[in-house]
Amino acid sequence: MTEISAADVAVPVVLRVNGDEYRITAEPRRTLADALRDDCGLTGTHLGCEHGVCGACTVLLDGEPVRSCLLFAVQAQDAGIRTVEGLAAADGTLHPLQEAFWRHHGLQCGFCTPGFLMLSAGMLESCPDIGDDELREALSSNLCRCTGYQTIVEAVQSVRDAGEA
């Protein structure tokens, strides 16, 4: 019989995030987003809706952009997770997408930005030559309330065009 984790007992979970291992305990109901923010202290992953529409909580799970509010931490055991905190190099050099968002004014309040960065990183890593229409279609996954999107699109296009991602 497969092991059952009781509802009100926090179970040990190992999360591998940005190459680091976090040994946490979490109730089964704890979402990956909450675990990243509250248990790992990685608060760059934001919560904007908690029902999978806004995309502010987007992280990469084994290279794919996913909504971390729609995953339970226990499901992410064994997976490789990347968050916005892992984008810049260890010496602080910004990732090309971060540079491009800065250069193109692809952010204002910055709340949606981590989600857009991770969405774009996942998209460009799996599809470096993505066409303009597909790129826009993919970026329609997330919501931004400040920029009107144009500068986000331009930032991501510039990274694609430079082949930098």
Partner: peptide
């Protein structure tokens, strides 16, 4: 921007 881009903002 740099702080916000690195997920280091404090909301």
């Amino acid at each position: 921007d740099p702080t916000l881009l690195c997920g280091a903002g404090m909301f």
